[in-house]
Design a protein around this nucleic acid. Structure first.
Lengths: 333, 333
DNA sequence: CTGTCGCAAGAAACCGATTTCTCGTAAGGT
DNA sequence: ACCTTACGAGAAATCGGTTTCTTGCGACAG
């Protein structure tokens, strides 16, 4: 019932607890005979070290916290999976927290976790940088993911948002679309503004002046995408294509187009950012800019480990690349 | 830089650490003047108790572990969110583990977590019950979710799988479909077998003898659903409808039908188990049996708390209800 | 033969809280 | 006025490990 302690093992092997600790951690040379006796005793009793006690003494833990902004978004869950797989391999467990894009909730979580001796943080930061800055100043290992925190030099993992957006928009232009709209996220998030910038720069490169009447900021969720699309449909002259900068908003936009019996791509061409599992089998198949989500998580975890091992290394930004999958939703007949 | 300890607060307030502890936990009566001084000192120093030390002394933690079998499945992530929201309200953090439907990986996780003084476990068990049984025998609070563990009396949260499946199948029959196929999950999982049983019982109730040639066991993933569907299409006479018992396999089945240019519901009617965000806007809209996923998580968390507070209460099984959303994919023209 | 050095292993301190034990003071009863 | 009782608050033990300090033994050099 009660777990055996290191004292039980010591007594059982006829040595001191210090020696047991030394054997189990392999830090110091111990007589081979004693070592075997300790190992045998530990095995026999089914001893497992109490990590609370160990971590209290070492003042660290084997926990990582991942704070994401929307647990309902498959983008973030795939990312968590990447983090988890790497962490697991290195002996860390992952605590998952969902900030819901709410800076106060994020602050609550981080404040609580700060007291928990968590050894590393991977955060998709909300707009308010102070939360992350506080962690960083407290000397904790921090990696920002998906979004670039303003005015804060921490390790960061991003995708090349501007390039991805430019590629998507250029593709629409090449297909002959001219009045191309863009539904992007909250202006305060770098992800949203970079993608918007890429969209605009593609238009300009093709000699089309970006029209503010065709740009919408929504909330990166399904509902917001629906509303923004409905809103765009009322614009005159109406857009003939739309570039939607995340997966959930793309779902909303498609739902809106379906509700209004608008044919894709004849009446409106569509390209979405982020992959979705059903992109290929809906009719028409959906064109997407896919991100290496799982790899983003793995990269963040790797950077976090490097930061923990060497807190003084200069901060690094890893930028991964997106891939355009052009399918029928953006193809001019 | 270094976090202040209870000794710092005590010194600052001119009292003993014991008194600080008493004030902060509100367990005992303390002179109002001292109380205010302690609170002021704690606030001024920004004191947060070190949870490692607290938990070591109390020999418990404020951590819950949720072990799910597929983090890529939105069903499980919605569920985790329900757990997390309740846990957060009660002061628990949630550690997320992904067993990937692999009993060995599950065993590794649970063994590691057992040493971590985790105070509660919510697990969607793989087929091997021993892992869960070990936890239970070690006296830990455990709640099984989504699947009923064989031969193990622990708190369990389920949906009424048999009823949901019967309702879906009956609906297909009422719409005039006759050769109704079923793609279900691994036979060893109660979820899969119960849904299959509900399907069969609906057929029998309508005077149709279940045909083994129309039943397929796959792996609850997209790929498996695709293969099973392809396989079913080769059956002679071919099925005129299919009931798919989870969301990811439904995606695979739909993909397969699309690849083979099979019209839904004219050639094959479709009903899926589990909701998906895009059910309403694909053409035709997808009929689904939805589960109250978020509520499942909340219920599991509530049961877990009750179990932690009273380890001796008799095990309880909560069964939540599914809802059939009949849409165009299952409607005979 | 003796003094020094190295090293293995036990003893004890420590991490930072909570909780039990102890003591002193004030209140209340006779 | 004195003795008992209650209670508030400090001292010290405790949780279970790790790490530093100390000790004792054997080896080796002078």
């Amino acid at each position: 019932m009660a777990m055996p302690t290191i004292y039980d093992v010591a007594r059982h092997a006829g040595v001191s607890p210090a020696t047991v600790s030394r054997v189990l951690n392999g830090r110091s040379t111990v007589d081979a005979g004693l070592r075997d006796r300790v190992n045998a005793a530990a095995a026999q009793l089914g001893y497992r070290p109490n990590s609370l006690a160990r971590n209290l003494r070492r003042s660290t833990t084997n926990l990582w916290a991942v704070v994401i902004s929307d647990i309902n978004n498959p983008f973030f869950t795939a990312l968590v999976r990447g983090v988890e797989d790497v962490g697991q391999g290195l002996g860390y467990s992952v605590v998952l927290c969902n900030s819901d894009e709410n800076p106060d909730k994020e602050a609550d979580y981080l404040r609580a976790l700060l007291a928990d001796q968590i050894s590393g943080f991977i955060v998709s930061p909300t707009s308010r940088t102070e939360n992350l800055a506080a962690l960083h100043e407290a000397g904790r290992a921090v990696v920002a993911i998906d979004r670039r925190p303003r005015n804060l030099a921490v390790d960061t993992v991003l995708v090349d948002n501007e390039h991805g957006a430019r590629e998507a928009t250029t593709h629409l232009i090449e297909q002959g679309f001219r009045r191309i709209a863009c539904i992007t996220g909250p202006a305060r998030l770098s992800t949203a503004s970079r993608r918007l910038r890429g969209y605009r720069s593609a238009l300009r490169a093709a000699g089309i002046e970006p029209d503010p009447a065709l740009e919408r900021h929504a909330d990166f969720r399904q509902r917001g995408g629906y509303t923004a699309m409905a809103n765009l449909l009322a614009a005159r002259p109406a857009p003939d294509a739309v570039f939607v900068t995340n997966n959930l908003m793309t779902v909303g936009a498609l739902e809106c187009l379906a509700d209004n019996d608008i044919r894709i791509p004849d009446q409106v061409g569509v390209v979405g950012f982020d992959d979705v599992p059903w992109a290929t089998f809906i009719r028409p198949p959906l064109s997407t800019v896919t991100q290496p989500t799982y790899e983003l998580g793995r990269t963040a975890a790797t950077l976090l480990k490097a930061r923990i091992d060497d807190p003084d290394r200069p901060p690094e930004t890893a930028t991964l690349h997106t891939t355009l999958h052009a399918r029928a939703s953006s193809r001019r007949p």
